[in-house]
Simulated scan of single mutants.
Amino acid sequence: MSRVCELTGKRAMVGNNVSHAMNRTKRKFNVNLIKKRFYLPEQEEWITLKISTSALKTINKIGITAAIKEAKSKGLLK
């Protein structure tokens, strides 16, 4: 599985390491992902999602059901 947040769709970005002499080499900025289990009371089941920590803050704010509904409307979840 790739390094992509299942709720927000965040992916790794590409940039440069820049030395003091202004030499540039390619590098990757990976997403801060965690694997987290959530309980869905409507379906009475547990689901495991690979999400970014910023998505976790959003879930804590609006709730897991609203976050999943928003991700489905954007076409990120099935």
Rank of each mutant, 00 (worst) to 15 (best):
R11V: 14
R27M: 06
A12M: 08
F29R: 15
H20V: 13
I59M: 02
L40I: 10
G75P: 01
R37N: 13
S2D: 09
K26M: 11
G9A: 02
G15F: 01
K72F: 01
S73V: 11
A12S: 13
N30P: 13
N17I: 11
P41H: 03
R11H: 14
L40G: 01
M1H: 08
T25N: 09
R24G: 07
L76Y: 06
N60H: 06
L33G: 01
C5V: 00
E45D: 06
L40N: 05
L77A: 05
K26S: 12
W46K: 11
H20G: 11
G9P: 01
T58W: 04
N60C: 04
L77G: 02
K26L: 11
E45S: 10
K28Y: 15
N23A: 07
S19G: 07
R11D: 08
E42I: 08
I64H: 01
M13L: 15
C5L: 01
N17E: 07
S19C: 04
L49A: 05
G63M: 00
K50S: 09
V14L: 13
T53M: 12
E42S: 11
L76W: 03
L77W: 00
F38C: 00
K26V: 09
I51K: 00
E70H: 14
G63P: 00
I47M: 03
G15K: 05
A66K: 12
P41D: 07
L49W: 04
K50W: 04
L7D: 01
K36L: 06
C5I: 04
A21G: 12
V14E: 14
K61E: 12
A55M: 02
I68L: 11
T25S: 12
A67N: 00
V4G: 00
A21F: 14
E44K: 14
N32H: 13
K50L: 08
K35I: 09
E45A: 06
F29A: 10
K50Q: 08
V4S: 03
E44D: 13
E45N: 10
M22W: 08
N60D: 14
T8K: 06
I47D: 04
V31Q: 04
I59Y: 02
I64V: 09
K35R: 13
R24Q: 13
K10M: 09
M1K: 08
L77E: 02
A66D: 11
N30A: 09
K10E: 15
K10V: 08
K50N: 12
K35S: 13
I64E: 01
I62T: 06
S2P: 14
E42A: 09
L76P: 01
E6N: 00
S19E: 02
Y39W: 06
L56P: 04
N60R: 09
K57V: 07
K61A: 12
I68A: 04
G15N: 05
F38M: 03
K50V: 11
N60W: 06
R24E: 10
L33F: 02
V18F: 04
N23D: 10
M13D: 15
A21I: 13
R3V: 09
K61F: 12
L77M: 10
Y39R: 02
V14H: 12
M13P: 10
M22I: 14
K26G: 10
S73D: 14
N16R: 08
